[in-house]
């Protein structure tokens, strides 16, 4: 089951930037690329907990602001020599609105 929740207008997120969504699982960073793709990642670098939402977005990657780990936003996998991953969440664009898949969040809150 999927449950997409409308969280914001695309325009509320800066291009090559991110905004935060507070959830029971912690903060989720919702990114917007230069060509208006959107991604949602756990806002916590597996290395030292850096806020990925404050990283520099390039292509479909983001670089952690604390120690420059680079993550592929499609998979959440760290790139290059670094080993680690962040959770990704499904996210969808509909008529200029950003929808986030809250399935996992809902299940957690229902439990």
């Amino acid at each position: 089951m999927t449950a997409f929740i409308d969280i914001a207008a695309l325009e509320d997120i800066p291009r090559q930037g991110a905004r935060l969504v507070k959830t029971v699982l912690g903060c989720i960073a919702v990114f917007r690329t230069a060509d208006d793709q959107v991604f949602a990642l756990e806002d916590r670098c597996p290395h030292k907990g850096g806020p990925l939402s404050e990283g520099i977005v390039h292509g479909t990657s983001v670089t952690c602001p604390l120690h420059a780990w680079v993550f592929d936003m499609n998979t959440g996998q760290a790139q290059g020599a670094d080993d680690g991953a962040v959770q990704t969440f499904a996210v969808r664009l509909e008529a200029g609105r950003v929808l986030l898949d809250a399935t996992r969040l809902a299940r957690r809150s229902a439990a």
């Binding site: 969280i7 507070k22 919702v30």
Partner: peptide, 11 residues
């Protein structure tokens, strides 16, 4: 500030 707060919705 965060753009949305789903903790409230979940509650």
């Amino acid at each position: 500030a965060p753009i949305a707060d789903l903790t409230l919705r979940a509650a």
